[in-house]
Design a protein around this nucleic acid. Structure first.
Length: 480
RNA sequence: CGGGGUGUAGCGCAGUUUGGUAGCGCAUCUGGUUUGGGACCAGAGGGCCGCAGGUUCAAAUCCUGUCACCCCGACCA
């Protein structure tokens, strides 16, 4: 017994001992991804990609439900096109990868590999939009983008990554703001109700804003090690890009007006968030809605008569109930399979052995609580469907509890310093960019967001660092 | 981009100081016994020692260059 436990520890580094090593152990050993020899790029293997596909499906449905359509725009952006919005260029220039040759010939104009598509989509929109009757334009693109990052980490920050970027154009300022917030809410709904990650919605500080945006809203999650992760952003671009890319329409009053545009995106980075929020020393822990396998059936002593048949019977029953289910009839010892599927994060494991068959029951083991529950075979699938919801709720609550336990409200700088070591810190802040930089230098914490669901009125309070009158309550944290 | 570290079988590593036939554990394959928390016995396969130059009779080992990855900073809409 003792020996077996030791062997397990050797396989995955303990989460509390070395969080970074634990993270890479999990993604490599659960077959989610692999490194390639291309700088900062990774291969997403079938198990990781299956999770992404489930995320895509859930998000895409939400985009459709809010009136958006999918489209596809080119990977390569001519340099001159990219250069039109000054602030945008300045923000992205350091991380753009360039195509300089076509075959053997040097190109007259370099082509940027898209770091994001505002510029090329803006260019297309200017051709497509003529009249207020064409508005709003609500499109989304599923694609890859490339940003030449200096340091990379699988899923969290890679040179190339998969994402979705929504781009919309509207008649009025208010319409665009409304869209920006609507999509933030779609993200929130997705993260809470699909990923079981309780995120904080809010506005970014000026310096953390998207290059060229008037306002950036974010969903911020707290990882188990107390660092924050920006899970998704929604930008109100005002008429900045419309002016740069000449997106104009003839108004109801017969005048040429600039559109107001938005953009919003989420990426495979969320997979990293999923791991770091829910995972434990046994490995991955997947919320049922994005688990490629929701129920794994393990026949015990499977060569004994009737065992495999019963397992397959249960498989059919679960499948008919709409569960993603698998029978593991591989020639491994039962103990090995237990650990393997726990590591892969499968929400429920069913054990079926001769003893169970005799008694007309199966043993179900929940991945989130490791609780063993004996269930009658009768009505099993229905019970499991319910259990999926219970697991989702359980995981969401556990993550929320962890977040609340690692969120402090700082009244002085000493409390701020202590709080930053633990997780989120709520503090009154002057909104000054220099003060923000200083806080980051001293504590390593950056501003995460001005929360939308909390009272941010700090009238009469002083800024946590500089002591000047505070303008707002702000969330701070060290971040990925 | 600075400071440190690592590249040897699918994974984890030894061997490098002092040049001399490529090693270990796990995994894999074959056959058999097993299976309720990481099973056992017997046998087998697997390598351009990151890549490119150089020194040498001889290089995983010494020298030069280069690439990639990891950690700490800086950077990161």
């Amino acid at each position: 017994m003792a020996k077996k436990e030791t062997q397990f520890v050797q396989e995955i580094t303990s989460r509390d001992v070395d969080f970074a090593k634990w993270y890479t152990d999990i993604i490599l050993k659960t077959d989610m991804c692999d490194y390639t020899d291309v700088k900062g790029c990774m291969t997403i293997k079938p198990y990781g990609y299956a999770i992404w596909e489930l995320m895509q499906k859930e998000m895409d449905q939400r985009f459709k439900d809010t009136g958006h359509q999918n489209a596809y725009f080119p990977l390569l952006i001519p340099e001159s096109m990219l250069m039109k919005e000054a602030e945008h260029v300045e923000g992205f220039a350091p991380e753009v990868a360039w195509v300089t040759h076509g075959g053997n010939e040097k190109l007259q104009e370099r082509l940027a590999i898209r770091p994001t598509s505002e510029t090329i989509i803006g260019t297309m929109y200017s051709k497509w939009i003529q009249s207020y009757r064409d508005l709003p334009v609500l499109m989304n693109q599923w694609c890859n983008v490339m940003r030449w990052e200096k340091s990379t980490r699988p899923f969290l920050r890679t040179s190339e990554f998969l994402w979705q970027e929504g781009h919309t154009a509207h008649e009025t300022h208010d319409d665009a703001v409304e869209e920006t917030l609507r999509m933030l809410d779609v993200y929130y709904d997705f993260m809470v109700n699909v990923l079981a990650i309780p995120v904080i919605r809010g506005g970014k500080s000026e310096s953390e804003r998207f290059a060229g945006a008037e306002a950036t809203y974010t969903c911020e999650a707290l990882m188990h090690d107390g660092k924050a992760l920006q899970m998704g952003t929604s930008h109100f671009l005002s008429d900045h890009f419309a002016r740069a890319y000449d997106i104009k329409y003839l108004s109801r009053e017969g005048k040429q007006e600039y559109c107001y545009t938005t953009s919003w995106g989420t990426s495979t980075r969320m997979i990293g968030g999923l791991i770091m929020v829910h995972g434990d020393d046994r490995g991955l822990k997947l919320p049922p809605k994005v688990a490629p396998i929701q129920v794994v059936i393990l026949p015990i002593a499977m060569h004994k008569e009737g065992v495999l048949d019963k397992a397959n019977e249960l498989f059919e029953q679960c499948k008919a109930a709409g569960l993603r289910v698998k029978v593991d009839d591989s020639e491994q010892s039962a103990g090995w399979k237990f650990n393997q599927w726990e590591m892969k994060g499968v929400p429920v494991r069913l054990e079926v052995g001769p003893r169970d068959i005799e008694n007309g029951v199966v043993v179900a083991v929940r991945r989130d609580t490791l609780e063993k529950i004996t269930l009658p075979m009768e009505g099993l699938a229905e019970r499991l469907v319910e259990m999926m919801n219970e697991i989702h709720e359980g995981m969401l609550n556990a993550a929320l509890e962890h977040r609340l336990a690692h969120t402090t409200t700082a009244e002085n700088f000493g409390e701020f310093m202590d709080g930053v070591k633990k997780g989120f810190v709520r503090a009154p802040w002057c909104s000054d960019a220099d003060c923000e930089i200083e806080i980051k230098c001293i504590t390593g914490a950056s501003t995460r967001c001005k929360p939308m669901e909390e009272d941010t009125n700090v009238e009469g309070c002083k800024c946590i660092l500089c002591g000047k009158p505070a303008k707002t309550l702000m969330y701070f944290a060290r971040a990925y």
